[in-house]
Amino acid sequence: MFPLRVSDLRWHAAGRAVLDGLSLELGGEGITILLGPNGAGKSVFLRTLCGLLEPDAGHIDWGGAARPEFGVAMVFQQPKMLRDSLLGNVELALRPLKVPAAERQARARAVLERVGLLHRARDSARSLSGGERQRLALARAWVTRPRLLLLDEPTASLDPSSVEAIERIVREIRTEGTRILMTTHNLGQATRLADDVVFIDAGRVCEHAPVQRFFARPASPAARLYIQGELPWRMAF
């Protein structure tokens, strides 16, 4: 699947170019954070990687092979849960993989334990708080043991302790060898999690750099403005 080479991706919606020649190369390890202003095309890019959107033009090369059927999982900004127990929702993700029923439950319980929700396995998924719901969504993606995990602002509008819990889980998933590509607007989170940062603006990649260098010396003017706009009030604390 890796190296993943994205070249000249284009996608239009309502006459506007959302992806406007986006190119990117990703190696097989680590956490990459996608940064960029709202409407830059980050979510759309994740959806094309996931296969939910067909780009108008451009090409994605999956390490020289065809697009794999399984192995890419995605957690949406507002994950939808079935009217079922936590366990049922996690097991759901294993059904397309044709995992035998007995093994499904064992795997689902194991992953629920790792996100700290096992004690609520039989509760309704719709009774969860925002933070718990995101942890459940991570568990649902994790249980499929993906090679590539796409996270679309998984900590938006969560309280600090929930954010911390999510970050801990993301790190843990990464140490198991899953490649992670994640969007966020939380620059502190980016510095805590990222190995490298991709800065996207107006549907194309402006900059792709290791995390320290990106924050110390952003090369593109757009990235510099973005960081300055975000950082001053955060740095004040």
Partner: peptide, 23 residues
């Protein structure tokens, strides 16, 4: 509501029907 989630999990449309009927 569920189209993106189920498609991302690689449910075929017929299996989605079964999931939704139950849900």
């Amino acid at each position: 509501d569920y189209e993106e989630e189920l498609t991302a999990m690689r449910f075929r449309w017929f299996d989605s029907v079964r999931v939704l009927l139950h849900d």
